[in-house]
Simulated scan of single mutants.
Amino acid sequence: MTLTPLRRLLVLATGVLLLAGLGAWSVLSAADRAAEENKPRAGGPAFTNGKVDLADPGRFVFRNMATGPQRDRLVSVPAGTAAGAARTTSDVSCLRFHAAAGTGVCLQATTSLGRPAYHAQILDSALRTVRNYPLAGIPSRARVSPSGRLAAWTVFVKGESYGTSFFSTRTSILDTRGWKLAPNLEEFAITLDGRPYRSTDVNFWGVTFAQDDDTFYATLSTREQTHLVRGSLSARSVTALAENVECPSLSPDGTRVAYKKRVLGKAALWREHVLDLRTLKSTPLAERRSVDDQAVWLDDRTLAYALPAEGRTGVDDVWTVPADGSGTPRVLLSDAQAPPPATR
């Protein structure tokens, strides 16, 4: 059939209308999906506007994981009434976060030229960005020393889970006094089994700091074994202390390390333990579920850690358990990731 100029015009107009309708449908569908994703969970935490201050005494500051527009924001609650308190919301979003003595480290994701980009933000007590450092991969762990002087972060540069056979990490330590960065702990000298050690498969993750702003502990992985190492930032060296230790967290008194211990070979199952650094005796904790987190010490007797929330994909709850192996795990915060200790 030969199309007359009028029929060509009608066909063109019809096509334009169809495309416009399809475009409107796509926009509305995307808006509906976004609205559904941002819809607050029924019975979830309440939020209030206000000031979030890392130096505010008696408050937990943590990453909110409740669905809604505050997802991933840093929020704060009074430590004594954490479970049911309304959350004061900031405008800072983090994938990983830790703070001490008014200094915070926030590992963030952004988009650059259509591709994900990751950054470590050093925050002051008012959550203002003091320094920004590009990251080589997906954020995994973050820690600040008790004085607030040192910050550490770990990222995955290959693979996205410690439970997989093939992954690679990069761990960095920053001294905020002079802004000196040790970009990769793999450059430090290693002592393993009393001898200098080198291997191409070395990975580090999960730094935790002592009070002296020089000593740190971390996980060293090599030849399918993990080791607790004690390091010196000034000497640029680490020494292996014990096997099968991951994501250590040093107690406030500096005598013990909480950690996750792999309990079923290569399977991604871990049990929380506490290691006495003087005797190297390890105590399993009352938490029997698999904990894939770097726990925090709320005080010298209590640990907090994140576990996937039951029935809610992509959401964690924070639980606590006594550090001596006694007691029963209890929920501290829902829709959250483990907070640093409240400022005293």
Rank of each mutant, 00 (worst) to 15 (best):
L95D: 07
F60W: 04
V77Q: 01
C106R: 01
R115T: 08
R301H: 15
L54K: 05
V318Y: 09
D300I: 13
S93E: 14
D91A: 13
S168M: 01
A79E: 04
A30Q: 13
V27P: 12
W297N: 05
S199N: 09
V321A: 03
A338T: 13
L280Q: 10
L275Q: 01
I122Q: 05
G231I: 01
D299L: 08
V105E: 00
Y197K: 01
L95A: 08
L17S: 09
T111G: 11
C94R: 03
L303D: 02
G194Y: 14
W270H: 11
R301N: 14
P252A: 07
P5H: 09
N64K: 06
R96Q: 10
P116R: 03
K266N: 09
T328L: 09
P340I: 07
P134V: 08
E224M: 15
V16S: 14
L17P: 03
V207Q: 07
G254E: 02
S145T: 07
S145F: 06
K266S: 11
A189V: 09
V238C: 08
T67Y: 15
R131S: 13
D91C: 03
A268E: 15
S168D: 01
A218S: 06
V245W: 00
A240P: 03
F166A: 03
A13K: 08
G178H: 06
S29L: 15
R344K: 15
L10Q: 14
A242M: 15
P183I: 05
C106Q: 02
T4Y: 10
R312I: 14
D193T: 09
R344G: 08
L18Y: 13
R256W: 05
P5F: 03
E224G: 13
P196Y: 05
Q337H: 15
Y133K: 07
A218Y: 02
L241Q: 02
R87T: 04
L285N: 02
P134C: 08
S168C: 00
G44S: 02
P308S: 14
S76A: 13
H98D: 15
W297F: 05
R143G: 06
G311H: 04
G163H: 00
D193S: 12
E224V: 14
Q294C: 06
T313V: 10
T279D: 08
R63F: 10
L264C: 14
